[in-house]
Design a protein around this nucleic acid. Structure first.
Length: 285
DNA sequence: TGTCTGATTAACT
DNA sequence: GTTAATCAGACAG
């Protein structure tokens, strides 16, 4: 282990989400259309007008009834929805959910709530559907989950497609990186569970908040979700839980096939998916 | 582009 | 004392 690397991680830990000055244009919440090129969701540039209408915004927000569904259904339902983070200065950061994992609680040995185990840390998993569960991992990183129907069941949000405001997201992500490191591509801003927490400024004390009613963080349906969801959904084994035997192999990770913001592409799952199925969608590649 | 490595520290056993 | 739902950087091909 080099001292340089140790210093880097140490720096990350110490910084722990200090306030970030926003660029001057932040309040205007300017969207950068087609940031991800042809690989991103179709017609992304057309979303702008939808988001600027206040009345439309209210209609887009998803309420309690959305979250009140079985874990796997909810994990799939999250795909294509837009996570919104409203910061103290009024900036709204938006990202479309492109990858999730379902943690079923109880029998699911890979879940923090396996065996019905309830602790101070995972209490949010047992709270009403839509409750946010934020926890720290590896001493440095945060992960964001949302509880669903089912005792101790929750959805891990793994990756987002950055929609708005990428400049602020990049700045928030840079806090956790070395100054000399290369600039992040747009698709790298939120392509991991901890990265999306950094990019959307999700702090640990968002734990136990209600995604259905909270004024600082919520979920919206995408006015053009139909277009975004033209991609197939891949079901693959979850990431980073190899030690949990049979549960490690269950296809409880869901992502939009061919989307550039997915954190880990599972070639085998995609091959399996198409054995005997229709020809693949060329638009996804 | 893909693979490998090691850091941190709260939570848990 | 051990583990962990991750990440970025280094290096090989």
């Amino acid at each position: 282990m080099s001292q340089r690397k140790r210093k880097r991680v140490s720096t990350v830990a110490k910084k722990h989400l200090p306030p970030v000055p926003c660029p001057s244009e932040s309040h205007t919440a300017v969207r950068s259309p087609q940031i991800l090129g042809d690989h991103a969701s179709p017609h992304a540039q057309n979303l702008t007008s939808h988001y600027f209408s206040k009345a439309a915004k209210e209609q887009l927000r998803l309420g309690q009834e959305f979250f009140d569904q079985p874990c796997i259904n909810l994990a799939r339902a999250f795909l294509g929805k837009v996570l919104v983070r409203r910061r103290a200065d009024g900036t709204e950061l938006r990202g479309r959910v492109v990858e999730t994992e379902a943690y079923l609680g109880g029998e699911d040995k890979a879940s923090h709530s396996a065996g019905g185990k309830r602790t101070e840390r995972n209490a949010a998993m047992f709270m009403k559907p839509g409750t946010i569960y934020v926890y720290q991992i590896y001493g440095v990183y945060l992960c964001m989950n949302v509880s669903s129907q089912g005792e101790g069941a929750a959805i891990l949000l793994r990756s987002l497609e950055p929609l708005e405001d990428q400049a602020v997201m990049r700045q928030l992500r840079s806090i956790h990186r070395r100054e000399a490191s290369r600039p992040l591509k747009d698709k790298e801003l939120c392509n991991g569970p901890s990265k999306l927490c950094q990019a959307l400024d999700i702090p640990r004390d968002f734990d136990r908040r209600d995604l259905a009613t909270d004024p600082e963080v919520w979920l919206e349906r995408d006015p053009l979700q139909k277009a975004a969801m033209s991609r197939e959904v891949v079901a693959a084994p979850r990431i980073g839980i190899d030690a949990h035997g049979e549960w490690a192999a269950k296809p409880l990770r869901f992502y939009l096939r061919g989307h550039p913001c997915v954190s880990v592409v599972d070639q085998e799952a995609e091959r399996q998916m198409h054995l005997g199925a229709e020809p693949e969608d060329a638009a996804c590649n």
